[in-house]
Amino acid sequence: MTMDVRGQWGLGQGNGSTVLLNVRQQDPDGSFGGTATVDGHAAGVTGKVTDSEIAFQVEHGIYIGRFTFEGRLTGLTVDGQNGHSQATWLATELFGPL
């Protein structure tokens, strides 16, 4: 069973950037899509979620994270263009099963 990441939720990044996601659809296999706003710039988001992990891409940013047993989501983002720019992140919401 996958975690339910549908709806609006945000990320606070360790580098000070903020990301607001609006996940509009999530398939039973965990694939999802929607929109994201990164520091005021709109972009698309696509990804996949399981019961314990998430991976998604917003433009050139690649996000990988894990859910804690409470449903908190934390992870790391990497710049997909150069791989040198990295930041940790923490979601603003708690998540439960789909």
Rank of each mutant, 00 (worst) to 15 (best):
H84D: 08
H60Q: 15
G75K: 00
S17P: 00
L98W: 03
G33W: 12
G83D: 06
A42D: 10
D79P: 01
L20Y: 00
G12I: 06
Q8P: 03
G10I: 03
D39W: 07
E93M: 03
T77G: 01
L90Y: 00
H84A: 13
T18F: 13
H84M: 12
N22E: 12
L90S: 14
N15S: 11
S52Y: 04
G34M: 07
H60C: 11
L90D: 05
R24E: 15
N22H: 13
G96Y: 05
R66N: 11
L76D: 13
T77Q: 06
T46G: 09
A87V: 04
D27M: 10
F69L: 12
R66W: 02
T18H: 09
D29C: 10
G40Y: 04
E53N: 07
R24M: 14
H41Y: 08
G12F: 04
P97M: 14
G96E: 12
T2G: 01
A42P: 14
L94S: 05
D51W: 06
V58W: 00
F67V: 01
W9N: 06
L76Y: 01
G75E: 00
G65P: 05
N15P: 11
G16W: 04
F32S: 07
G34A: 11
A42G: 05
G65C: 08
G40A: 05
V45R: 03
V5E: 05
D4R: 14
T74L: 01
E59F: 13
Q8F: 08
T77Y: 01
G34K: 08
G96Q: 08
K48H: 11
G80T: 02
A55K: 06
G7D: 12
Q26H: 08
G33Q: 11
R6S: 14
G34Q: 08
P97W: 02
S85K: 04
K48L: 08
L98R: 11
T92M: 07
L90T: 15
T35D: 13
N22W: 08
E93H: 14
T74K: 03
T46R: 11
N22S: 13
G14R: 04
V78S: 01
T46V: 10
R6F: 14
F56W: 08
L98N: 07
Y63K: 05
L94I: 05
Q8Y: 06
G10L: 02
G65Q: 07
Q26P: 10
H60K: 14
T35K: 07
D51C: 05
S17H: 11
S17R: 03
G61W: 15
H84P: 00
N15Y: 13
L21M: 11
D27N: 12
G14Q: 07
I54L: 09
V19H: 01
R6Q: 15
F32R: 11
S52M: 04
F56Q: 03
A43V: 02
V23T: 13
Q57C: 09
S17W: 00
G71S: 07
